[in-house]
Amino acid sequence: MEEFDLQDIWKESHEQAKSYYQSIEPEVLDMARKKSKGILNKLKRNLIADSSMGIAMWVFFFYYFWDHQYFWLMAGTLLIVTILSSIPAYKFSKKLKAVPTQNVVKSIRGYHEVLSTELRKTKSRMTIVLPIFFIVGLIMGFTGAGRGIIELLQWKILIPTILISILAIIGLRWLTFKFHMFHLYEKPIDELKKLLDDLLERD
């Protein structure tokens, strides 16, 4: 077996390529204009879905609690959080477009950097957003049950509520990262890192 044998065999597979292309040729342009199913687009879609969910939650909140005594305080907080968490989706999309494409190594490195930064930012964002949503929910629930907010501020109620809230937030954050963020960020980040190390033969 010689090297040129392999190149000849490889060349012959061009006939198969032609045969496949003939079968899809009429719809090639339609295929090219479909939505990407790649991991980066999945991430982008996920960020957009997160923002949309925030907006949906705000609408739901507005509809059901508009006559609540703390409505404007809560609605304002939720609106600010929703707007702040919508910005990353837009920024992420811009960063992806800016990834260098001069060669494979530069692109892989670019994607790795964008994803790693996004993961770091998502972690910080969740650390801030989760407690806010939790506190808003807690106050709404407490006052909705006909109890005054002053009652919530009594030590006997406040301390256990804070402890339970902290545990719930930690648990929720852990679950989100274990099952959701791992597949969305950490796994692809590890794969890109391994690919880059292999291409550059680093340990």
Binding site: W10, H14, Q16, A17, K18, Y21, M31, K34, K37
Partner: peptide, 26 residues
């Protein structure tokens, strides 16, 4: 031909091959 050869080199299942070919076109 380039798309076909790359897609064949990175997949072993028909569904994956078609998905990758389309993703490259996109």
């Amino acid at each position: 031909g380039i798309l076909y050869k790359i897609a064949r080199s990175y997949t072993t299942e028909e569904a994956d091959f078609k998905d990758l070919y389309q993703e490259m076109l996109i």
